[in-house]
Structures are given as structure tokens and as C-alpha cells.
Amino acid sequence: MIAPAVVGGVLLAGPLVALLVRAPWGELGGLLAGPVVLPALGLSFGTAFASTVVCVVLGVPLAAVLAGSDGWPRLLTRVARAVVATPLVLPPVVGGIALLLLLSRTGLLGRPLFAAFGITIPFTTAAVVIAQAFVGLPFLVLSVEGALRGVDPRFAVAAATLGASPWATFLRVTLPLAAPGLAAGAVLSFARALGEFGATITFAGSLPGVTETLPVAAYIALTDDPGSAIAIAVVLVVVALAVLLALRERWLTGLRA
């Protein structure tokens, strides 16, 4: 039992230790401010923030619909939940290809969009945000749906008998009571967006300053400029650890509330 457990621990922690040991700590500041990392840093945090906003705006209504789906036919509920969860199990590259087939100039939705408004989405910053929202949305929806289902229905009954419409009840009572789940879902989808690689490089490409996010920049820099690649990796590890800490805090406050 002990030996495989140790191997498992090394498998999980070893790469991180190697990264931290080999990181060029002395030059880190210069690398982060350099021409490879800095544009990617700004782009990544900007697009991850934007895609998190998209996830919240689209995901909360989706979660609310799913949370209220108990009266639906069972098959419909299952299909709806499977659709929401698909990006979790789909290889991101496949997601990127699928987004191209939908939104490229010859795509299902992209063709009429281009014909009517001359809009092209792939290989733009908007495409980065869409790819990130695609992979991040399930985290938000599932987390918020669980939180909404956990809210005691008596609060909604009390709100209704106090004169609140279903919409006001949702906004002022149910959603605030599900806030810890919403925060956890937003943090998770932000983290997922920040790390997004496969769907992004497929659907948005790697144009420096436009679509080259941190993971894409790290991958491309690895052969010519390993220092920059490692610097980016350190940034992403730090963000990942911060997310873990933030979620732990959230869960605790969620339990205390």
C-alpha cells in the first residue's frame, strides 16, 4: 500500500517540484515583463475574465432552468444535463474543431453571420473568449445548479407570500442564498479559462497579442525560449494554487452561512 501511494504522490507533486526547482527565479521578473510573456499575460487574464462574465451571464439562467427541471420528461432532463457536461469530457481540440464548424465563415452559424454582417469570428480575441467560455461553462452551471437545489424551498414560499414575483424571488432570495456556489463556479470557470489550450489554438490560433494566451505562448516558446515558457508555467501554477485556496475559503464560508 505504502509504495504505490508514494509513487502516486511523486507523480502528482514531482512535476511541480521540478518546475519550481528549475525555474529561473533570478530572471523571472525580466521574463515576465519581456516581449513574449507580457502581451500573453494581459491577454490571458483579460479573456479569462471576459469568458467568466459570459459564463455567469449565460450559466446562471441555464442552471436555474436545470434546477427547475424536475417536472420535465426524464429523457429531456438527461439530454439537457449531458449537453451541459459534454465540454468536461470532450478533448479540447475536438471542442475547437466543433467551434470552427459552427462559427467559421463556412460554418453552420458563421456563414449567415458573415453574409449578413461581414463578421468573422475564428482567429480573433472574441474566438479566444468563446473557446474559454465553452470549456468553462459546465463548471459554472453544475456548481450553481447544485447550490440552487440546496436552497430550502420554504424561503421561496415565504417570499411569494410576501408579494415577490417569481423573478424577484429568484434575484433577491434564491440566488443570494446560492451565492457561495456561484462564487465557486465562477472561480472554477476562470481557472479553466486561464488554462485553456486545445480549443483556443484550434479555434483562435496563436497570433501574438491577439489570440496567443499564456498556455499557447508557453507551448510555442518551449523550443526557442524555454526560460519564458517556464516563467509562464510558474505564473499558471501560482494562479492554480490561488484558486485552490480561494475555493477552500469559499467552501468554509458556504458551510458557515
Binding site: 420554504r154 415565504a158 417570499a159 411569494a160 407570500t161 410576501l162 417569481p166
Partner: peptide, 16 residues
């Protein structure tokens, strides 16, 4: 319920 002039106090007061 929100359009009825009817107040309801539950056994568990369900304060928000």
C-alpha cells in the same frame, strides 16, 4: 401567491 392579500407564517419562520 404574490397577488393575494394573504399572509403566511410557517412553523419554521423561514426568515431570510
Amino acid at each position: 401567491p404574490e397577488r393575494r392579500p394573504v399572509g403566511l407564517v410557517l412553523q419554521q419562520p423561514a426568515l431570510f
